[in-house]
């Protein structure tokens, strides 16, 4: 399998005022933040900008302070997409994870061709030892996103991927996203509210 050997740079952002009127959660959209993830190949001077989803910032007309808050589902989308790119460039290219993933393929093929019982597969999300070794390579990405849009909350993911039944808790897709995000950026990345 081919892999992309990219160096992860930093998060770049800019804001533009919202054109036209739009309200979310009863609050007006004040401006829109555009974010990019900068990546480059080793030795390459000019890197590549990967567009991330936009984040709408909401105002509060009843409050006198200028505190704008990011729209939760937009924030969840940015963290999720960034996590997927980081995984592509930094996690899945790590030799240990590549080797264990390759072993998954061998185990799968073996059980497939020989009619054996399905094996227990390696899950990179649970390989905390290897992940802890990789995370410093993209520490600046996590900090950049925290500075720009704040940490994602469980309710951000709850709003982005609503549970199909009217039950408390996150939907399956929401839970998967939170699990992947915690594996990429560490357990402390997602906050309760």
């Amino acid at each position: 399998m081919e892999t992309n050997e990219k160096q992860i740079g930093e998060i770049q952002s800019s804001k533009r005022p919202k054109e036209g009127e739009e309200k979310l959660d009863g609050r007006p959209v004040d401006n829109v933040m555009e974010l990019q993830l900068l990546v480059s190949e080793e030795g390459e001077e000019e890197g590549e900008e990967i567009d991330l989803p936009e984040v709408r910032f909401l105002g509060n007309p009843e409050s006198e302070d200028d505190n704008l808050r990011p729209h939760g589902p937009d924030r969840a989308k940015v963290w999720k997409k960034t996590g997927e790119w980081v995984r592509q460039f930094a996690i899945e290219t790590h030799p240990t994870i590549r080797e264990r993933t390759y072993d998954n393929r061998l185990e799968a093929e073996k059980s497939y061709f020989h009619g054996e019982e399905e094996p227990d597969y390696y899950e990179w999300q649970e390989d905390e030892e290897t992940l802890a070794e990789i995370r410093p390579r993209y520490r600046q990405i996590k900090q950049g996103l925290i500075n720009q849009i704040g940490r994602p909350t469980r309710s951000d993911f709850g709003s982005l991927y609503p549970h199909k039944y009217d039950d408390p808790g996150l939907s399956e897709r929401g839970r998967r996203s939170v699990r992947d995000l915690k594996a990429v950026f560490g357990q402390d990345v997602v906050v309760s509210s």
Partner: peptide, 25 residues
């Protein structure tokens, strides 16, 4: 499906499939 990145609940590696999620092989 390939051996890496299979999204849980969408089938095991090596399972016949015509539907894939981003990140899967």
């Amino acid at each position: 499906k390939g051996g890496g990145g299979v999204v849980q609940g969408t089938g095991a590696p090596c399972e016949l499939s015509s539907t894939f999620k981003k990140g899967e092989t």
